[in-house]
């Protein structure tokens, strides 16, 4: 599975963010979500979905090899991470997330909750095209 998004379909409802935090962390908190929705208002009036495409830049810059690839997704190994935030700096999409009360960054593990719950099909599986409604 690889994530893809069609920004034109996004309505900015943020169901994806809440589904993400519920599935990955069991917490009801979109601020802990591992993807971002950016609104461009009042002009030009559009949304932009920022999601991890598993490009591996984070793993490449990690000085302690704390972001291994497991089952198709790069994952942060919390036991190895030294909170240097090099990955946050390096992420080209701004989706290495650091919650205000967290000490280490976190990232998308490709669980697919956002794809399943997006009401618009704006986020979908690039491999199968599935997720559209």
């Amino acid at each position: 599975m690889r994530l893809a998004a069609d920004n034109r379909l996004c309505s900015g409802c943020r169901v994806c963010q809440l589904a993400c935090s519920m599935q990955v962390l069991g917490e009801n908190n979109p601020k802990k979500s591992l993807l971002r929705i950016e609104g461009h208002f009042p002009q030009p009036g559009a949304y932009e979905v920022h999601f991890c495409n598993q490009c591996g830049e984070c793993a490449a810059v990690c000085p302690v090899d704390a972001i291994p690839m497991i089952d198709g997704a790069y994952r942060v190994d919390e036991t190895k991470c030294i909170s240097c935030m090099a990955c946050v700096e390096a992420c080209p999409r701004g989706v290495m997330m650091v919650h205000p009360r967290a000490e280490i960054p976190s990232k998308c593990i490709l669980c697919g909750a956002c794809v399943c719950m997006c009401p618009k099909g704006a986020i979908y599986d690039a491999d199968t095209g599935e997720g559209g409604r």
Binding site: C13, V15, L18, A46, P119
Partner: peptide, 19 residues
Amino acid sequence: WLTDKGCFCCPTPCGKYAH
């Protein structure tokens, strides 16, 4: 119409952003 504009967690956004 430019885009649908949803309230928080809305599956059926009635908000229609326009120019």
